[in-house]
Amino acid sequence: MKQIFIHSEYIKLDQFLKLSDCVSTGGMAKALLAEGAVLVNDEKEERRGRKLVPGDIVKVEDCGTFQVAAQ
């Protein structure tokens, strides 16, 4: 599991997907979420604006598992 460090209280899921190099654009993030390929804390997530906080676990199909971490 790879840790992704954030410098704020939270990060939105679409921004996190770009930061973790799973997607390169917001449109790609939207498509990935619509496919059901993203789990947050083992629950399917489709909202691009979902706020992630340190400790959350994000699993992305064909990309990996990531933990949100505070810096």
Score class of each variant (00 low, 15 high):
K44A: 11
I4K: 14
V53H: 12
Q71M: 03
T25I: 13
A69M: 07
T25L: 11
Q67H: 00
L33P: 03
I6W: 07
A31R: 14
A34W: 05
F16K: 02
G36I: 02
K51W: 06
C63N: 12
C63M: 05
L13V: 02
G55T: 05
K18Y: 06
L32V: 04
Q71L: 10
E9Y: 01
F5E: 07
R50N: 04
E35C: 11
T25V: 08
D42K: 12
K12P: 00
S8Q: 12
Q67R: 11
F5W: 08
V53W: 03
P54M: 08
G36K: 03
E45H: 04
E9W: 00
V53Q: 09
D62Q: 13
E43T: 12
L39R: 13
I4R: 11
E43W: 10
K2N: 11
G49V: 01
T65N: 00
I6N: 07
A70F: 04
K2R: 14
A31S: 13
V23F: 14
Q15S: 07
D42Y: 11
L13D: 00
P54W: 01
D21W: 14
E43Q: 15
I11C: 05
L52S: 02
G55H: 04
G49Q: 03
E9C: 02
G27Q: 07
F16S: 03
K18L: 13
T25H: 10
G64F: 03
L52F: 02
L39I: 04
Q15P: 00
D21Q: 15
K51G: 01
N41H: 11
K51N: 12
K59S: 08
K51P: 04
G36R: 01
I4G: 04
G55Y: 02
G64A: 14
G64E: 10
Q3T: 07
L19F: 01
C63R: 11
M1C: 09
A31Q: 15
K44D: 12
G27T: 05
Q3R: 10
V68Q: 00
R47H: 11
K59I: 02
H7A: 14
D42A: 09
G55R: 07
M28P: 00
K18F: 12
I11N: 08
D21F: 15
D14F: 14
K30V: 06
V58M: 03
F66W: 11
Q3D: 14
R48Y: 04
L52N: 01
L17S: 06
C22Q: 11
Q71Y: 08
E43P: 02
V58A: 04
E9L: 03
E61Y: 11
G49T: 07
D56G: 12
D56R: 14
G26Y: 12
K44V: 15
Q15H: 06
E9K: 13
H7R: 14
L33R: 13
E46Y: 12
L52E: 00
R50C: 01
L32R: 06
V58K: 02
L13A: 01
K18V: 13
D14G: 05
G49E: 06
S20T: 15
I57S: 01
E46A: 13
T65S: 05
K59A: 04
M1G: 14
R47G: 01
K30M: 05
E46V: 14
R47S: 10
F5P: 00
I6H: 07
V68T: 02
